[in-house]
Design a protein around this nucleic acid. Structure first.
Length: 395
RNA sequence: UGCCGAGUAGUUGAGUGGUACAACACCGCACUGUUAAUGCGGAUAUCGCAGGUUCGAAUCCUGCCUCGGCAG
């Protein structure tokens, strides 16, 4: 299922081929996020044209809307969304965080370093109610207010209508089987970044039990990846990697966050990858800012999904060879140059900054589409260049 | 020409005696397995003009100006 074509001698980076019933993925590869069976603003044809090799959709969201039975009757996700290349589905484990502690505290998955130079953990607070400077803690045993985590799974409340719904490993596997993606993920808990070590230990035990249950309930016609957790603690990451590596998964997923310094993520990845088989594909969940990509590939990551190129595009940010450009800023109205002269995508070939800026400021949805297309093309091209370096032995 | 109504931030409006508020626009920041074309923050007003009453006026009174409606 996974074949390594070239292993770098300078790093853990490798070129591989991940085979699926819907074709091959040449790794390393970004897997753009198509939560609701769509890369927001793009058609599946456009996502393919932007050089996306595979997409990842979401179990929780598709279960809520339109429901997996609708997709099953449509012939599965591939036919439903008219995408004939490889597909993954995430298990709903991330929603345990994002709709639980994430929503409650108004925080993101990632912690970040205090800008005042202390080593104190500071969180990206986005919820006005929690705009205090106090350090948030999640002690062992604490439940998020908005959902309930038990040994068997998670009782969610629908963010759409408040209805209760239960998803555990069994339910996640059943839903993912109906969706019928090529690669699916074990049901896990993505723990909050500010959780105490004791909380993370309990959460990890639960995630490991759910990993075994996911294996038990999964149909072998889909590839199933287990998920390593453990937060910012090296001992927990090592323990988790050993546990997941010992189970008969088709690949290794790596989830959660890794601490509030960028270099810490590298250390955690090295710890994890040292414990898993070189022959298995490794997928890093939810990481992929441009500056992270060379680091994670050198650490030995084969595939990774991230909302950054698509999400930022819809907030007006273009990633270019000149860096991040906020294309909604009025200065671009007077700029007749292409978005990025060095980019070969149709947006950069055929349109100019002034027009992109106008579309964004006028809130025309085509502006979001053009930036989404460009960002994906740019990220994918960036990764192609890294692959060339691996192939030629310079990375 | 008369009568009636209206003039408050760039715009549309709220505010009927204690020197101003919202939305949008503008400017800035954030966003890493998507509840997000989102969230947070900031700047911006001699309250049409001139007088008067009052301790105090966007608010009450007088005159004027501008716009709209109706009448002639």
């Amino acid at each position: 299922m996974f074949k390594i074509l070239k292993q770098s001698t300078r790093s853990r980076a490798r070129i591989g081929i991940l085979k699926t019933p819907h074709g091959e993925i040449e790794t390393p590869c970004l897997v753009p996020v198509a939560t609701s069976a769509v890369v927001k603003t793009l058609t599946s044809e456009e996502a393919a044209a932007a050089k996306c090799q595979a997409l990842i959709a979401n179990t929780y969201h598709l279960h809520l809307q339109p429901g997996e039975q609708v997709i099953k009757r449509a012939g599965g996700l591939h036919q439903f969304m008219h995408w004939d290349r490889p597909l993954m589905t995430d298990s709903g484990g991330f929603q345990v965080f994002s709709l639980g502690f994430g929503k409650e505290f108004g925080i993101n998955k990632m912690a970040r370093a205090d800008t005042r130079g202390t080593s104190r953990l500071v969180l990206s607070l986005t919820n006005a109610e929690n705009k205090s400077d106090t350090l948030l803690r999640v002690p062992a045993g604490q439940q998020p207010k908005l959902l309930t985590i038990t040994d068997d799974g998670v009782e969610f409340r629908s963010h759409r209508d408040g209805a209760k719904l239960f998803i555990g490993p069994k339910e996640s596997m059943r839903i993912q089987a109906a969706l019928d993606a090529d690669i699916i993920f074990a049901f896990d808990e993505c723990p909050p970044p500010h959780a105490d070590k004791e909380y993370l230990e309990e959460s990890l035990r639960r995630t490991h039990r759910w990993a075994q249950a996911s294996l038990q309930y999964h149909s072998p016609r889909q590839a199933l990846f287990g998920i390593v957790q453990g937060g910012r603690f090296q001992t927990l990451r090592r323990e988790s990697a050993r546990c997941i590596a010992a189970l008969p998964f088709d690949g290794i997923g790596i989830g959660g966050e890794f601490g509030h310094q960028k270099t810490h993520m590298n250390k955690m990845l090295n710890t994890i990858i040292a414990e898993v088989s070189a022959q298995q594909p490794r997928h890093l969940l939810g990481v992929g800012h441009l500056e992270d990509i060379p680091l994670i590939i050198k650490a030995g990551i084969d595939t990774f999904d991230c909302t950054v190129p698509t999400h930022y595009a819809r907030h007006g940010i273009a990633f270019t060879s000149h860096g991040r450009l906020d294309m909604a800023k009025s200065r671009w109205l007077r700029d007749n140059k292409p978005l990025d002269r060095k980019c070969a995508c149709f947006v950069c070939c055929d349109y100019r900054r002034t027009y992109l800026c106008h579309l964004l400021r006028a809130k025309e949805i085509t502006g979001l589409k053009l930036l989404t297309y460009h960002n994906l093309f740019f990220f994918n091209t960036f990764i192609e260049q890294i692959k060339i370096k691996i192939k030629t032995g310079t990375l």
